[in-house]
Amino acid sequence: MVIGTLQEVNLDTAIMAKLWKKIKCGKFNEVHSMLIYKENLLVFEAYFEGHEYQWDAPDYHGSFVQWNQDTAHPIMSCTKSFISACIGIAIEKGFIANAQQSIFDYLPDYQNFKKDGKEHITIEHLLTMTSGLAWDEWGAPHGTSANDIDRIYSDCSTDPIKCVLEKELQSTPGEEFTYNGGGTIVLGEILKTASGMDVAEFSKNYLFRKLGIDSTSWYQFENGAFATDGSLNLRSRDMLKFGITYLNKGSWQGEKIVSEDWVIRSSKIYGNNKRINIPGEDSGRNGYGHSWWTSEFSHRGRQLKAFRAGGWGGQSIMVFPDLDMVIVFTGGNYATNSKLFKIVKKFVLPAAL
């Protein structure tokens, strides 16, 4: 990755200096890192103090540390976008025929759930959060069994796949958006059955190694399934590499990693997945594709489209094709709102345009 300067890509240095000071002073709650890649150069990289993530601590805040370039950070639901990339690669490599296949083609141990309309759930439905399965991940507080994703970790760790598939079908697959991290965990099992490799091995062989990412960690359930909904830990620069790959239509340093078609599918709103408000964010209304969020920014009369991987607490990989730019954030805003869109709207876009 080539290091450059703000001046080389015409980013206003005074505005960016002001932003750095505001982040350092906590004006945007806890931002742990911010990186900007523009026009083939890493031109902004800043790390700040903040709390490590700790599930059983007040506000989920553990030790107070100085984050740095070598520190792996929980990327939470940004993990889902990495799993989407792995599914796209598996299709490209022939492990999976296509995203329209029934999920039960790759779940031999769960055929008893292939009934009552669930047989129509496809891989694409899991990727786009439109499986139709009843699921409450946003409406119920964390730390309670009413929150379905927390229940997987507390009550269903011996078989999280069953925990997802036993849910009732509340709508026709493909029609309604319901945020469902459990569906992404099922995708991890599908990937394992299709390729003969677990998620850690597959992602290492076909994604991370090719991107020069040599340090990753995952959480596994008691039965060995991987928590593909949000347990991946990565360094900020490694998150940036992934974003650059999608900015470059699936290529990293001249090598095709993910097909261009899959990048297009990922960054395009699926069906009725529009006008979605995400709890804990200032992102407004969003669209959702193949496990990537979509947004539009308005600046000085210009509409700018972006797509991004997003995670609880202020983790984000924002891709701006129109500006040839990727922005990465990590943060610790688990019990407070993240203000990443305010940063982009009030500082980055005015600095760039």
Rank of each mutant, 00 (worst) to 15 (best):
T178W: 02
T193C: 09
E175A: 14
T245I: 07
A194P: 15
F242P: 15
N233H: 13
G230C: 08
A227K: 08
G182A: 13
S236V: 10
E176T: 11
D214R: 10
T228I: 05
K249V: 07
E222S: 15
G181E: 01
N248S: 14
A200H: 04
T193Q: 12
G224M: 07
I213N: 00
M197A: 11
I185S: 09
K204P: 02
G183D: 09
T245P: 14
G182C: 12
G250K: 02
I213T: 01
Y206W: 03
K204Q: 07
L191R: 03
S236M: 10
G188T: 13
T184Y: 08
G183Q: 07
I190M: 12
Q220E: 07
E201A: 13
N248V: 13
M197K: 14
N180Y: 00
L207Q: 03
L240H: 09
N205A: 08
D214K: 11
Y179G: 05
F221C: 10
M239I: 13
S251Q: 11
G174Y: 14
A200P: 03
F242E: 09
Y179M: 01
D238Q: 08
M197T: 05
T178C: 11
G188V: 14
I213V: 09
K192H: 12
R209N: 08
S203R: 02
G181T: 07
Y219I: 02
D238L: 07
G230E: 04
E175S: 15
W218V: 05
L187S: 11
Y179L: 04
S203Y: 02
L234V: 01
T245A: 15
A225P: 08
A225V: 14
G196P: 14
R235F: 02
K192F: 02
I185M: 14
V199N: 11
N223F: 10
A194T: 10
T245R: 05
G224N: 06
K241P: 12
G182P: 14
K210F: 00
S195H: 02
T228H: 01
N180M: 09
D214L: 13
D198E: 04
A194V: 13
K192N: 06
G250D: 03
R235E: 04
A225M: 12
L211C: 01
E189D: 01
S215E: 08
S217N: 00
N180W: 01
M239S: 06
G188L: 14
E175G: 05
N233E: 06
G212R: 00
Y206S: 00
S236C: 14
L191N: 04
L207G: 07
G230R: 05
Y246R: 09
S236A: 15
E201L: 08
L187P: 15
G182F: 11
R237W: 06
I213E: 00
G250S: 06
K249D: 14
F242I: 15
I244V: 15
G212N: 00
G188N: 12
S236W: 08
G188P: 15
S195E: 01
L211N: 01
F221T: 03
A194C: 13
S195W: 01
G188A: 14
S215P: 03
K210H: 00
F221V: 03
A200I: 09
T228N: 02
N205C: 07
A200C: 06
K241W: 03
F226G: 01
G183F: 10
F242L: 15
G183A: 12
T245V: 13
G182H: 10
Y179W: 04
R237T: 12
N233L: 13
D198S: 04
A200K: 10
S195C: 06
T245F: 08
K204D: 03
